[in-house]
Design a protein around this nucleic acid. Structure first.
Lengths: 339, 339
DNA sequence: TTGTATGCGTTATCAG
DNA sequence: CTGATAACGCATACAA
């Protein structure tokens, strides 16, 4: 059996209450006793029992992370960032995959409540009013990361990149390089933040720049390589007049599109320019290296975790605020200047 | 305050002992009482307090995972596999990054002890005798995954792919395609399993096939894209007679090498064949798609987790056994048949 | 088969 | 400033 607070109390010749005070940093204990206790603690490598402590205080040192897919590179950068600040603060990270399922998500949220989590970071899907309501009623604060609530409100504190302007900036970049016929390969429409918001950014920039975008230039994939290739194929088959550039909403889709274009006899960027989003490692490794807009997921994770800790420290469940992580257009070799 | 076992007992008009028995599936309780209790449980959505339970039983429902780098794609596949079986079994996963630091690794191991983990999966680095000793003295079983102990013994249960034969098979494949001058870009020499073991496999196959391998054909990277490119450059600069094929010990290094070769005016596979290891998504996305040897990390993770649960159920700390996950050569487009 | 009582290791309340 | 002691919620040995 491990060594307990009683053992320390005996060895230091004080009461367990005193031991508890010193290990919790209470100021109301005399230097002498404090010393005696600390020595005993160190001598025996005493570590208070997590569960006993949690039982009385009703709090653990656990931060939960709920994501759709751990092995998605974008997500794992996010997780890495979160993990880093949690570790620095002495919190342990409990990670769960929802598989992109809303019900799982909710179940996991409740599970984290059972674990008396200090707080949780949620990179979710399809966060509707009901989801928001349950989050707000949990015993711990949650912060949304990478995905905001569907209603565009921020009842739950959220940390995210600015999807609208990220894509708008990309389109402006394409425009500055002489492109006027621009197609769009986006995410699922039901994906509010990284799906529809990006389309919104696209449309917004198109209007601003007076671009004519036929409906057949707007395609929806699901961020994967395969869907990117598939959209490219449809774009090619279903348009007599091809675009000069395509804005793909993930690096993976961009690469899928490039590969497909290659099979179709279209060279990138000579015959067609393609731009991605994310700036995952892939973007650099691919050849030609991908012109893309960098979303700093690692930083986003760190920021989200810090925001969560702010919440925890203030004792609030939410600030109702949103914080945006800045993006950046990265010029590489898949967009040609056709002016 | 949440609802407790007492509330349920009162409501079902039984003792708390009985409630405890039914929620723990004891057979020694009459159907009638069982029903009454279950109804009360469901009606109130009763969930036993994790900490109180853990306090008395001295066990949690936590499985720890310690890895070097969460965002490494290979690792995240592994984690995904582990996570899946843990979730199925109702265990929660606590994940920690060691950053490839041995001391961190040990600290984390102890931290998991404080958390009374049911067990931990360790994808470690440089596991020496001392590490093994501390693992064996922990209060929970640990299984090594993706990295065996340096001494080649399996005092700690381990689950891993067969690095020696994976590379040997790859070299045989190269040989079968007519290659005789084969270079090797490996991992760090201090990386026992995925570094030196793979070199061993290379040497073994070379001997078996009577290949002449000059020292200048053996390079050491660290599995990254950049190191792959760097090794390729050195290979080119420091050899008057170039190899016809290079065996790179990760897909990332293979791709780095291909890119570098391109800059050097060497086309893959026409001028030079390059083979990777892992079969990460990258291998398929890259063009030309990479010929590689598939290491099924996801399955490896699942198997490791199952092996851990076997250990947990048997109450043993280790079986001292090793289980190998089968690999497979995947032919794609970076190796040319030059016969 | 069921209930009572005790203990698990801490924290926190209340006297001293 | 310090020390008893009562929770915390549950599992379990022991009785009945």
């Amino acid at each position: 059996m491990a060594i307990t607070i009683d053992d320390i109390a005996k060895e230091a010749n004080v009461s367990i209450a005193t031991v508890s005070r010193v290990i919790n940093g209470s100021k109301t204990v005399s230097p002498e006793l404090r010393n005696r206790v600390m020595e005993a603690v160190n001598r025996n490598h005493f570590r208070p029992n997590t569960f006993a402590r949690a039982l009385t205080t009703n709090k653990s040192n656990i931060i939960g992370i709920i994501v759709t897919d751990i092995s998605n590179p974008v997500i794992s950068s996010l997780v890495k960032g979160i993990h880093q600040v949690c570790q620095e603060r002495g919190f342990t990270v409990m990670i769960c995959e929802s598989g992109g399922n809303k019900d799982n998500e909710k179940a996991l949220l409740y599970r984290m409540e059972e674990q008396h989590s200090t707080g949780v970071l949620l990179a979710g899907v399809d966060i509707d009013q009901e989801s928001v309501r349950t989050m707000l009623n949990l015993s711990y604060p949650v912060v949304l990361v990478t995905q905001e609530a569907n209603d565009g409100k921020h009842a739950v504190t959220t940390v995210i990149h600015d999807n609208v302007s990220a894509i708008a900036d990309a389109v402006r970049f394409l425009y500055a390089n002489g492109h006027r016929r621009i197609a769009f390969i986006g995410g699922p429409e039901r994906d509010y933040s990284n799906g529809s918001k990006r389309l919104e950014g696209f449309r917004q920039a198109a209007e601003e720049l007076s671009l004519e975008i036929p409906d057949s230039y707007i395609l929806h994939g699901n961020f994967t390589y395969e869907s990117g290739a598939d959209c490219m194929r449809r774009l090619y088959e279903e348009n007599t007049e091809l675009p000069t550039a395509v804005m793909a909403c993930s690096d993976l889709m961009a690469i899928g599109a490039i590969s497909c274009a290659g099979r179709l006899g279209l060279r990138v960027p000579d015959d067609l320019s393609i731009m991605g989003v994310d700036d995952s490692d892939l973007a650099r490794y691919f050849s030609p290296a991908l012109t893309t807009v960098r979303i700093p997921y690692f930083d986003e994770g760190k920021t989200a975790a810090n925001v969560l800790f702010d919440l925890v420290e203030s004792g609030m469940k939410t600030t109702g605020s949103i914080t945006h992580i800045p993006h950046k257009v990265i010029r590489r070799f898949t967009v040609k200047d056709i002016r």
